[in-house]
């Protein structure tokens, strides 16, 4: 039972991270490289879920994706399924809440790439995509990965938005933090503490992988 709980938690956090990465890179590029008009507003938007209580993000998602919500009713009409209270909703909640952490890391990393390198590539005839994939992203890799893993850890621990938009359904939307919450509420301390141990192990493992990736890339300098 613990194994499926851990797998579901990982699944939700991984999917949230995968949804976020292209968006984070795209928005960062718009904000720090293209400096599009109104990018300061975009910047605020990117960081907003970090500043808001997660329950607000969850409630917003519920209004958007719920049966009566504009997006929820559209999906229901087209696909005939509900998004809310499924693992997809849990992944979306984790994605929204963890997005700022990832995006800010990615943005800093992309901003830090020497513009002269990008300019010279362009002057040698490389198109915007080629510059992005052969110069900017490879050079910003370290910071991007740091952002990705930071976002991933946050997605692993997401609670407030998830319980609002995905509920607490064992085997479907119940992640580690929700399971711990339930055990604490029921006064099942032994179960709660066991899951707390699992939670700590997952967090430590992620941080170790993060540090290992960074040290591995440093030794090749």
């Amino acid at each position: 039972m613990d194994i499926s709980l851990i797998l579901l938690t990982l699944q939700i956090a991984v999917v949230a991270t995968v949804i976020n990465l292209p968006i984070a890179i795209g928005l960062s590029w718009l904000i720090v490289k293209r400096r599009v008009r109104g990018s300061f507003l975009l910047d605020v938007l990117v960081s907003l879920p970090l500043a808001l209580p997660p329950v607000v993000s969850g409630y917003f998602l519920l209004l958007l994706l719920g049966r009566e919500g504009p997006l929820g009713s559209l999906i229901r009409d087209i696909l005939g399924v509900d998004i809310v209270f499924t693992w997809v909703a849990a992944a979306l909640a984790s994605a929204v809440v963890s997005f700022p952490l990832m995006a800010r890391g990615v943005m800093t990393a992309i901003e830090g790439v020497d513009e002269r390198l990008e300019r010279s590539a362009r002057s040698l005839g490389a198109g915007a995509l080629r510059v992005a994939f052969t110069i900017t992203l490879p050079l910003a890799y370290r910071g991007i990965m740091a952002g990705v893993l930071l976002g991933f850890v946050r997605a692993l621990s997401e609670f407030g938005a998830t319980i609002v938009v995905a509920g607490n359904i064992p085997g479907r939307t119940q992640t580690l933090p929700l399971a711990i919450f339930e055990k604490v509420q029921l006064g099942r301390d032994a179960d709660a503490l066991r899951l707390v141990g699992v939670s700590i192990a997952l967090a430590v493992a992620t941080i170790l992988v993060h540090n290992w990736l960074l040290s591995k890339s440093r030794t090749k300098d």
Binding site: I135, L137, P138, L139, Y141, R142, M145, L213, S217, K220
Partner: peptide, 8 residues
């Protein structure tokens, strides 16, 4: 480039 990009 190459190293980071490959790990990336």
């Amino acid at each position: 480039p190459t190293v980071y990009w490959q790990i990336g």
